[in-house]
Design a protein around this nucleic acid. Structure first.
Lengths: 140, 140
DNA sequence: ATGGAACTGAAACCCCGTTATCATTAACTG
DNA sequence: CAGTTAATGATAACGGGGTTTCAGTTCCAT
């Protein structure tokens, strides 16, 4: 009945490091590529397993966007929004949300929160337009 | 080589009517339920097919928001945002976007557009809290 | 060092929204 | 009205994200 006693594996640490270094929301595939930097033989199943446990620990939190795999970022940051590059697919963090002015909801509605997504092209893509092949390669 | 000559079927009209009457973005499942009101034996495949052709005609446009299945609404409205009720799952339209102030992106980024989602509870749900069963039923 | 539990990697599997298949039905044309 | 053929409905197949399985590996308390 006792739950498993957690262990500190190199794989889990590689995944944590990947998120810390990226400093932007990563999809499981992106996290795999980045963490393989630290631990070459890492498998995708391990990434999913550890993302799940890092979510449960409250170390990661999900960032969902339309029509795309959910990304994850290190938890505990101030409320902020995201930018999605339509060329390379990367998700970036924007500065804090203060100063954003929201539309008013209809009478009688209760607003619990909001999500805002800007999209377009990131500086990186504007400087070095990437082919589909290149895009796959730079997804370190 | 000539492309098919389109026909006006009762089913397609029922689907159009569903979107017009709803006056809010509908998911394919919601559109099915609403259109079955007009045409009882309508099937889900027909809904998908007609949504696709209505998109191609420019009569519908997609509404994609983080963490939600894509919905569709009648095209041609002014740029606006949406409200998602976390109780009944309905998506509502908000007034136009003018006056909304957005965060600035990092230097060198090009913003092509934005999506904003408010969420919480709609007036309907605040007035008559619905059980899971009721929720399914009122999804006319 | 070592024994046992937790973890891993590879592949099979699952879920579910969407699309394709195909026999049947029903719009349109003449 | 009849003939042509686009559209439908039921269901199977697909695809992508995510999870489970299981034999083998590794962490770690002793």
């Amino acid at each position: 009945m006792a739950q498993p006693i957690p262990r500190n594996t190199r794989q889990k640490q590689a995944i944590r490091d990947a998120f810390i270094e990226a400093d932007r929301p990563l999809s499981p595939e992106e996290a795999l590529a980045a963490a393989q930097h630290h631990y070459g033989t890492l498998g995708i199943a391990t990434v999913y397993r550890n993302i799940k446990s890092l979510l449960a620990e409250g170390w990661l939190e999900p960032v969902s966007l339309p029509g795309q795999a959910t990304r994850y970022e290190v938890a505990g940051k101030a409320h902020h929004h995201h930018f999605h590059c339509r060329k390379c697919g990367r998700m970036y963090e924007l500065g804090d949300c203060a100063g954003t002015v929201l539309p008013r909801p209809p009478r009688g509605f209760r607003v619990a929160g909001h999500e805002l997504l800007l999209y377009g092209n990131c500086a990186r893509c504007l400087n070095m337009p990437a082919s589909a092949k290149t895009r796959a390669r730079i997804r370190r």
